[in-house]
């Protein structure tokens, strides 16, 4: 794993090309185009202790309100905490881009975001995940930098869970570092070319709770390498492998495989000619 990360970092620094910021695990500070509609379906799968494959399904509708604002609506389903796949709530996410310093082959952008989710199911888990496990809210900041050949993004957020089962943690601080690199095409000629991007993302989490709740505290750090294909400059396929490299949170999945498909429709409603 460390070897793979080193190879990816070597690739970022030594080869020519353009960096990409369509990160599989996090959102960049850039927004979708005004009136663009994105439809996303993602699965997160891990093998439980009794060798059963457990899956989470995340459906997402995204919309670019204008150059500064965008909104997502989510629906969550999973059998992480049950025998069958159950509905695990809904959520909404807003992002506001407040800083853009663009020039040729580089930009620095900053955005603030918020997420609020509602999950009617009570799940007994010592992990904090407001996207599919608990109801909750999050606020955060994202800064994305494109430096000719390297795209870097840092996402920081504070998360609070609303629903408590007694063992659930209540708060977490999350920090993600993402990097992306385009490996194909070497030269753009048309929209039909399939793009292939490599990413590596580090995702850290530190969770806290009230003092009498012994289970619900700890920290974790996951590393997520991904490969991404973009078809017709419109449809995206991400395949990611998440591996925990540090974890003191009880019962957290040690490794998982994620697959995500996204399709974008430009000028969805307002600007049809």
């Amino acid at each position: 794993m460390k070897y793979l990360a080193s190879v990816l970092l070597f690739v970022f620094f030594h080869f020519s090309g353009f960096a990409q910021e369509l990160f599989p695990m996090t959102e960049p500070a850039s927004n979708m185009a005004t009136d663009a509609l994105g439809l996303r379906l993602g699965t997160n799968n891990y093998q439980s202790n009794n060798f059963k494959i457990k899956s989470q399904l995340k459906s997402e509708v995204m919309y670019g309100i204008n150059a500064r604002w965008m909104i997502h609506f989510n629906g969550y389903f999973s059998d992480f905490y049950s025998k069958a796949i159950l509905f695990q709530g809904v959520g909404t996410y807003f992002k506001y881009r407040f800083l853009s310093m663009d020039s040729e082959h580089r930009h620095t952008r900053m955005a603030a975001f918020g997420r609020i989710t509602y999950n009617p199911t009570k799940n007994y888990t010592t992990d904090l995940n407001i996207e599919g496990a608990q109801s909750g809210a999050a606020v955060g900041l994202v800064i994305t930098q494109l430096l000719h050949k390297l795209a870097l993004s840092v996402t920081l957020n504070e998360t609070k869970a609303f629903s408590s089962t007694g063992i659930n943690p209540e708060n977490s601080f999350n920090y993600n570092l993402s990097a992306g690199y385009l490996i194909y095409p070497k030269k753009y000629t048309n929209y039909k070319q399939t793009n292939c991007n490599l990413y590596v993302e580090a995702m850290g989490k530190s969770i806290t709770s009230n003092p009498e709740n012994n289970f619900a505290a700890g920290a974790s750090l996951d590393i997520v390498p991904s490969i991404q294909f973009i078809f017709n400059s419109q449809t995206r396929l991400d395949i990611s492998y998440k591996r925990s490299i540090y974890n003191t949170i009880v019962y957290n999945a040690h490794q998982s495989i994620m697959v995500k498909v996204e399709h974008n429709i430009f000028n969805a409603f307002r600007n049809r000619k």
Binding site: F18, A33, N195, Q234
Partner: peptide
């Protein structure tokens, strides 16, 4: 245009321009 490299980004500009009468 500045601030972009990917063809999906170019596509979004292309499609936006085409909406002008």
């Amino acid at each position: 245009a500045s601030g972009l490299t990917c063809s999906m980004c170019s596509n979004s500009i292309d499609k936006a321009l085409r909406t002008l009468p």
